Structure formats: C-alpha cells, structure tokens
Computed example of a mutant assay.
Amino acid sequence: MTVAPADLLPVMQRSHGAGTLEVKRSGGATRIARLHQSGNARIRVPKTYGKALEAVLINTSGGITGGDTLAWTISAAPATETVVTTQACERIYKSSGDTGRQESAIRVGAGASLFWLPQETILFDGGRLQRGLDVSLGEDARFLGLETLVFGREAMGETVASAFFHDRWRIRGADGDLVHADDVRFDLRGAGETADPAVLGGNRVVATLVFATPDDGESRGLMVAGARALLKDATGGASQIGDKKGGKVVIRLAAPSSYILREQLLPVIALFLGERALPKVWSL
C-alpha cells in the first residue's frame, strides 16, 4: 500500500463566521444601527410587537467541529432593550483533534437591558469546544445570560465518553470591576465519567443563568424567592450576591433531559424578562 505524503493529503474545510449587531434607541423603540455578517454567521431580526428588539443568531454550517471559529459581537446603546437568541441548538461535532472556538463580545450601554438566551449547545462524543462570553455593562445596565449544555441526544441514545468543553464567562460593570467570572471545564476521557455524583450524577443537561442588575438586595431577594418557587422540584439552586448598589442572581440547574430542563427554565426566563416576550424559538 502506498501512503500519500502528508502535504498531499486532503485538508478538511473549516467554517469561519462572524456577526455584528449594534442597536440604538430611535422613536421610542430599539432599532438596528448596524448589522454585519460574514462566512457562516447570519443575524435575523424578525418583526415583533413587544418592547424589545429580538435578534436571532444563525450558524449556517449546522454546527462546530475542530478548527471552526464563530464570533458574535453585540452592542446595545443606552436605554435600549434587546433579546438575543439562536435559531436552533448549536451542535459540537466529533473532532479529528483540533478544538472549535466561539467568542461572544457584548456591550450594554447605560440603562439598557440585554437578554442573552441562546438555545442549548449539544456536545457530541469526541467534540471539542472552547467558548468565551465577554460582557461589559454601562451604568444601571441589566444583563441576563443563559447557557445550557447537553451531553449527547437522549432520543438517539447517545453517550459522551470522550470530549473537551471549556466555557469562560467574564462580566464587568461600568467601573471595569468584575461582576461575574465563571469557568466550566469538562475533559472527558472515558465512559461513565459524567455519571459521577461530583459531576452530573446521572443527569445529561446542565444550565447556568446569571442576571446582573442594578436593583438592590431586597429586589434581588424577591427574584430569587420567585425563581426558587418555580424550581422547587428541580435539581439545582438560586442565589443572589451584591450590595445596595447592585449585584447578581445566579441559577444553576441539572436535569436528565433537555426537555425537562427547558420545562423548568421557561417560567424562570419569563420571570426575568418581565413584560418582554419570550422568543418564539423557545416555545415547547
């Protein structure tokens, strides 16, 4: 058998995409100020009748594998209201060795509210992803961030024995001080590791929700009480951290299936959205 030299072997095509959305306040409503998209990144702004502008992020390549890159930049001007979601779940496919990368940079102007609500990320066996979320908040800005990770598709009977996933969050306030820092890292190298009680304990879906708000401790306490009441039968918890000048609410959940977790999350998301409409793509 003749083996082709390494420089003659076919090189697998990688996908690279970048999307930028800037919104402004105009005529009493939040409107597009600038939209740019390249590669496999697309941004759609459907017509809605609520208070907030809704943006839907799309990865036309259908997922991320080793060597792929995807970058989102969202900038919200002062006093705007924006809800950002994704058209579908993001899929992290088996990699031949390289690590896929996704970076999201979000700027929220003074008095603005931005709700980052992507649908679930599904990690396939052999998948590798490095993901970062960098948020900068203006004075009295509000930010709700949610990320959900699914270990394989339960309906297909998939298991994830080997995979790498690193999710890094950094949220900073108007003064540049750190409001929230989070690093979640899975480096799986054998079947059954996620079943360990110290890891997932038999669950296959995990979610983190962070609400950074200028509200005082009493208001945050009411939010936590409301969330706990909605999540009384869920695996996880809710807490609030901060002082009279503002702080955050943090919720972490785990569930045996994405459907169960979504059932639990929907009323909690609606709680934090208030009068704003839940994106239609999130409907069960």
Rank of each mutant, 00 (worst) to 15 (best):
E22T: 10
V108Y: 11
L137T: 05
E139D: 12
S95N: 00
Q130Y: 12
R31D: 04
S136K: 15
Q13K: 13
R131P: 02
L117T: 10
R107F: 11
K51L: 15
N40P: 11
V45L: 14
G97W: 04
T82Q: 07
L149C: 03
S38K: 11
A41N: 10
R44Y: 09
Q130F: 15
T69C: 12
I106W: 14
S104F: 04
F151C: 05
G145L: 08
R14P: 01
V84M: 08
F115I: 12
T121G: 03
R25K: 11
G67T: 00
A41L: 15
A155K: 09
E90V: 03
T48L: 07
V23L: 06
G138D: 04
E54T: 14
I74W: 06
E81M: 03
P78W: 01
P118H: 10
G39M: 07
Q37N: 08
A88C: 05
G138S: 03
V83D: 01
V23D: 05
R131K: 15
G62R: 00
Y49F: 15
L149G: 05
L123W: 01
F115N: 09
G67K: 00
L53T: 07
A55R: 01
E139K: 14
D125T: 02
I92A: 03
G17L: 06
W116D: 13
T69Y: 06
E154G: 09
I43A: 08
G111E: 08
R107S: 14
R25F: 12
